[in-house]
Design a protein around this nucleic acid. Structure first.
Length: 259
DNA sequence: GACCAGGATATGG
DNA sequence: CCATATCATGGT
């Protein structure tokens, strides 16, 4: 199937650290998410895809969002304009909240390769016929640990007992601050992980996850390399970009990492 | 508020 | 082969 995708870059969107269960396949990507597995490739302004509906893909990759308008506003910032020019087609994905939660519980003090390994093993270990396990299914602590999750295993084990799809999806209807506060009630979810879940699965575009890379790039571009507190980085982003802070984060993150 | 453990992988020397 | 860095959090 074929779908128009203007102002969208599949490669940088998939490879910008939002998604973990994907691999290159032929001239495109095989992407797994919850119970879905689909193939996508891009030729110019069109996506060639199979395994999901066009409606799913449109929502998943945010093809219904006016990125031209977002970039126009953010490009008033000279620093940000450079990052946007480097990868102008990056989109924020709309993930499933549960898979997103488990993914970023795995992410703490880790790296992308290892997170991918964790999620591959968790899916093999607890999932049914290749699908990502549902809330309630990841219920064996020693086996979670055997998925190379280390000290994060107890967080995954607890989160699996404490949430379900309905409660997580209900967070989409709450204001950002409330959704984030609810997520942070779960063990292992602090400010950074909560912001990732808000931005990548709950449509909270004002969320600004602060990791080592974002902290570094904000210090370099806006504060002459002087060391900042994470709290101050978040406050700066909120003040400067407001509801578009999440988009700014993604452009800056991918640009700085691929420098 | 600053420091530290905990667990595994990839990369560079 | 060893040293080092890695998309943080919770406890002290």
């Amino acid at each position: 199937m074929r779908l128009g995708a203007k102002d969208f870059d599949l490669a940088s969107t998939v490879e910008s650290g939002q998604l973990f269960r994907w691999s290159k396949e032929g001239d495109g990507y095989r992407i797994a998410h919850r119970d879905k597995s689909f193939f996508v490739s891009q030729e110019g302004d069109f996506l060639e895809f199979s395994g999901v509906t066009a409606a799913f893909l449109t929502s998943f990759f945010g093809l219904d969002v006016d990125y031209a308008a977002i970039k126009r506003k953010l490009s008033k910032d000279a620093m940000l304009r450079t990052a946007i020019k480097a990868y102008p087609g990056i989109h924020i994905v709309r993930q499933d909240p549960w898979e997103c939660t488990v993914s970023f519980l795995c992410s703490s003090f880790s790296n992308i390769k290892k997170i991918q390994l964790n999620l591959r093993k968790l899916t093999e270990c607890f999932g049914e016929s290749g699908a990502f396990p549902c809330p309630g299914d990841i219920d064996d602590h020693p086996r979670i640990k055997s998925c190379s999750t280390g000290y994060r295993s107890k967080y995954i084990f607890e989160a699996n007992k404490l949430v379900d799809d309905r409660s997580l999806n209900a967070l989409k209807r709450l204001p950002y601050a409330e959704a984030k506060a609810r997520l942070m009630e779960l063990p292992g979810i602090g400010e950074k992980v909560a912001d990732c879940i808000c931005l990548f699965s709950l449509d909270k575009t004002e969320a600004f996850p602060v990791d080592v890379w974002i902290k570094r790039v904000i210090e370099e571009l806006y504060f002459e390399g002087k060391s900042m507190k994470e709290r101050d980085v978040r406050d700066f982003a909120k003040q400067r970009w407001g509801a578009l802070a999440g988009y700014a984060q993604q452009y800056l993150y991918h640009w700085r990492r691929t420098l």
